[in-house]
Design a binder for these strands. Sequence first.
RNA 1: GGGGGUGUACUCAAGCAGUCAACGAGGGCAGACUGUAAAUCUGCUGGCCUUGUGCCUACGUAGGUGCAAAUCCUACCGCCCCCA
Length: 395
Amino acid sequence: MGFEILIKDKKSQARTGILKTAHGKVRTPVFLPIGTRGTVKSVRNDELHDWGAEMLLANTYHLWIQPGDELIGRTGGLHKFMNWDGPIFTDSGGFQIFSLGEKMAKRNGPDNEEPAPFNVRGKDTGIYFQSDLDGKKMELTPEKSVEIQNNLGSDVSVVLDEFTGDLNDFEKVEQTVERTTRWAKRAKERFQKLKTGGQLLNPGQLQLGIVQGANFIDLRKKSAEEISALGFDGYCIGGVAVGGETQDKMLEAVDLSLPYLEEGKFRHLLGIGNPENIVQAVARGCDSFDCVIPTREARHGKAYVSHDNGYQTLNILKPEFRDDFSPLDKNCDCYACRNHTSAYLNHLFKSGEILGIRLLTEHNLRFYLNLMKKIRKTINDGSFEKMVKNYKNRP
RNA sequence: GGGGGUGUACUCAAGCAGUCAACGAGGGCAGACUGUAAAUCUGCUGGCCUUGUGCCUACGUAGGUGCAAAUCCUACCGCCCCCA
């Protein structure tokens, strides 16, 4: 178990590597399709496998609420429950503290003590949620997150963290950095206790720490140093692309974090991103990515297609596709591009047919997975720098 | 033949004297989406322009009442139902 760097790019920080997990090797740089509730929405596991998905991301929070991590643990873990033999990465629930908290604050006002139907209140011991399923009050602590991820038996687990979308509020960001470190210590302790006690459902489970700090030089450094000092199996860079910041700001946050992390360890950039974001972040030394863009936007009719040396996005619902009888992307080998026309896809989306969602989800995921293959290949053959230079979203 | 009902913007459908260029839904158009409460969400959807407590044209057709009508009255046209 662990990470091994294979080839370092000479002109950038990019590298290829292998992450060895209890369920197989992951070739990096890698993109993880998001399967929040133990399914990548609308597609089958065998399809994901065939398309070249190396590792999936599932979510601690959602599986805890439903159907419950203990139930999944009883079946032998998430791999068995969802019948996916490959590696699984679990997020800690930290993002839900942010995303659900913000949504609830908007709905109920910032100081509402008992907002309904879903209560999110941050305390230092953990986070208090009220389940939107049955109203039950639930507490997610750093320790609890570790235990849930243990019941899920994921290959790569992540510590519970906290961050804010108020990127310019130094004090607020500082608080989240400090809390993230305190929580990381607790998560690590619990994880080590389970591990040394032989209580890990997946004995090969890895645990990653998370760096926060928005775009403050001092805070990113502080966070990266403190988290790094705790000695995790790898690191996540978090709190990025959450405040509507530009790509430059997002990449700056990466640049501010990486120098303080051990070079030989696995680095995951949480929640990123669009294809250009990913290429740029690889050039800066990130090994792994996850993002809802290809799957969510597919459901909304947006397709990522090759274009010149970069890519472009198309809205399949646009009138211009009504009678476009050519394939969506002639350079793509997905099922839809080999067997259907844009006009047909347009029709499926216009008429709300579920197949349209499936086909575009496949298309976008394959676009992303093929991009990662291309990134690995160009790093290996020394042409990555050239690729980075030309790789852009071309409207 | 007798009685009753109905006609509203692309469609369905509210409104039944002024706050109506007209609720709502669908459709159409545009936009958003970055560790997924997202097959979701947000705008716009009669025309014109000097973009405004602006001007035209519009609620089957033609008249009328009234300061004011999609809303009331009359006639006509179309559609629907019931009784013979």
